[in-house]
Design a protein around this nucleic acid. Sequence first.
DNA 1: CTGTTAGCGCTTTCAT
DNA 2: ATGAAAGCGCTAACAG
Lengths: 337, 337
Amino acid sequence: MQKKRVTLADVARLAGLSTTAASMILTGRPDTRLSADAHAKVHAAAASLGYRPNVAARALRTDKSRSIAFISDYVATTRFASGLIRGALAAAEEAKHVMLVLETGGEPARETQAVEAALDRQVDGLIFAAMRAREVFVPDLPINVPTIMLNGTSARFPVSVLPDEYRGGRRAVELLRDAGITEGVALLGHNADSEAGLFRSETIARRFAGIRDAMIANGMRFVAELSCWNWEPAHGYDLTRKLLRTKRPKALLCLNDRLAFGAYQALGEAGITVPEDIALVSFDNDELASYLRPGLTTIGLPHEEMGRKAVELMLGGIGAAQLVEMPVIERGSLPRR
Amino acid sequence: MQKKRVTLADVARLAGLSTTAASMILTGRPDTRLSADAHAKVHAAAASLGYRPNVAARALRTDKSRSIAFISDYVATTRFASGLIRGALAAAEEAKHVMLVLETGGEPARETQAVEAALDRQVDGLIFAAMRAREVFVPDLPINVPTIMLNGTSARFPVSVLPDEYRGGRRAVELLRDAGITEGVALLGHNADSEAGLFRSETIARRFAGIRDAMIANGMRFVAELSCWNWEPAHGYDLTRKLLRTKRPKALLCLNDRLAFGAYQALGEAGITVPEDIALVSFDNDELASYLRPGLTTIGLPHEEMGRKAVELMLGGIGAAQLVEMPVIERGSLPRR
DNA sequence: CTGTTAGCGCTTTCAT
DNA sequence: ATGAAAGCGCTAACAG
């Protein structure tokens, strides 16, 4: 262990000034009416002593801890949405804030504990992040700091940062159209009509709405719509095999990359080549998409930018909800024109 | 915004006792000599007021903030080692601690800032985590809290938590042997001899040592050793194609799952089936491994357990360095016997 | 322009 | 068995 920590009083003493003076100078208050000489002495003293302010003490006094809480269901511990945390972390660091990360597994009890733990530590703001965009449970606790929803929504806190899924959906169809494919397109992963009311999430519903509208706008129709609830590679594989038994589409529009991954496997086994025989477009820009051969063209989830925006919004005094554009990542699964 | 926060003084007032009494009762000191009646009154008051202690104030007084810092190069923001953070988060939560997550990208300047930011906030301990196990840069700052290295090492802080790569290497070979494959094994991803001295990390060197020793112990020899520096799918693909031009091995021992993924692709194109024609064993238990068809049998990195252990070690007063066993994840890429 | 003083909310001697 | 008072390190009124 080291010797005791250097305090502001130590700095003031060495500089031959009061702690007040030292405090004002070091915190850089604009209305300082202290001499340039005093400034120099204090800074020199602080530097030579290696002074660092005690944030806990400052927080006690000012109610500002320069820290924010990132409360999520699974974001930090799952790879799917790790971009959210990456962006948030980067923005927090730039703003010289520190981020407490709390995971709740979506369980109300842990959610409550997480909020309490964060509030007990005087965080300056809360971010509720969801792995998959949806209505998020927010514990019914008094929350007196700026709060924003990330990749999810809450009736209580209306400001949220979400991907612009509707436009993303449209872009996917437009990509196909621009590649000259206006017929023979099959949809992989649509949820059956019977489940239409309970789309896995609001945002996915918007993704689908964008697709639907763009299809109509371009006078296109799906040659097949294969429905499944779970968007895992195995389902993409099964669905594609089933599809190939009766049809030979020109393109597959997959609702996410893992489904597309399964489709690649089935296509490969059937000796069908991408993109010559069948083109693919998908969503999410999962890391998988870059591993595939040929690389998968996909409409990416802008997680990193979303995380960043959430922190900026929080620190900048909230504002209005944000829709973040989904980038088009072109790889090789669509024919070049 | 809400009305002012409830303080200990409020609780004491309502209970008709002093703050001293309230403090002792609520913190549950064992040597309390306060009446049962006093206990009841204080607890009732605290509950009815919804009292929550101010951790900043407590930290100021006790030098304990019930928070720890998780400082890493890329762990939080990359999917490779997210298990580390998951385990650490879980263990911290169980111990009622909160975790500050800081990312440095491995840059010394950011590393320094991160440590300062953490120390300024009176964290109770530091965990330095590395995405890939290696010697980690630790800034030359006075650090007066328990510190442990996770998935990496440092001369300054000798206590680290690492995967038991040597045993893992041995297990991989034993898996092959137990499947009846003692010849025709090709190694994918070994680093060339010219690079022997600079294995990507100490732990990978141990993985390879385990493999080598087990090969010798079982009287086995590689039929080919394909070297590459970057363990990405594309390299696994290229290496496998090259290999197949001259040889037809019975098994591929891949140094990681991404390499194996590339190998699957090359094998598939060549019409070679796994595991009938060629068996595969690999390392890491990347999520990819479960997506492949057949599933990839792999020696997993026990990241979650490591993260958990690091926190437990830190909170439990350090101790000795730990080697965590790598689990064998059997899927379908090895023939059943 | 600078210093004194009074807390922020809590824990902890030390009296009673 | 209980309470008064001091003080952790810092900032913000308020005097000088």
